[in-house]
């Protein structure tokens, strides 16, 4: 097991479906009609149902990240950032990748902590549409020493 800044997933495709937006919005107790009603979304100026801003976290399910594959210790979520150049709406398809932007090692009170800053990028027509930065913290203990 080793972590290095620059490690990157293959590109993967994501298509945003109406039902996925609705289910996700329900799961975070969001009652904004723009996530549920296409007509209301269109009246508000969006081409289709609008996705909640934390929606791209679902895209992680579709990525294969070799460097996290073999871990059997829980990862702690330290920080999360989303930035949008355009809204995500139903019917959109994105080409995405996830890469390790930064790797830091810190001495914590209970052992060594690895701080792994990941970036998910979503593109449409070769243009960046959004980024989602996810910082995960891994607690190292005997048996899972990281190179």
């Amino acid at each position: 097991m080793s972590f290095k800044a620059g490690m990157t997933s293959d590109f993967f495709y994501v298509t945003v479906k109406h039902q996925d937006i609705q289910n996700f919005a329900r799961s975070i107790q969001n009652k904004n009609p723009l996530h549920f009603d296409v007509h209301k979304a269109k009246n508000a100026g969006f081409p289709d149902l609008l996705a909640p801003p934390t929606y791209p976290i679902l895209f992680w399910q579709l990525a294969k990240l070799d460097w996290l594959d073999q871990l059997d210790v829980p990862l702690i979520h330290g920080e999360q950032k989303f930035n949008y150049l355009k809204p995500i709406v139903a019917g959109d398809t994105y080409i995405c990748k996830i890469y390790l932007k930064e790797v830091k090692k810190k001495q914590g009170s209970t052992g060594v902590l690895w701080i792994l800053k990941h970036v998910l990028e979503g593109y449409q027509n070769d243009e960046l549409s959004f980024t989602s930065e996810t910082t995960l913290i891994l607690r190292e203990f005997q048996g899972n020493e990281v190179e």
Binding site: N30, N32, A44, Y84
Partner: peptide, 16 residues
């Protein structure tokens, strides 16, 4: 999202 129902989020970041 209900207070700004027709607006769009350009950025959102949190520390846990």
């Amino acid at each position: 999202s209900v207070v700004f129902p027709t607006s769009f989020v350009v950025s959102y970041e949190t520390k846990f």
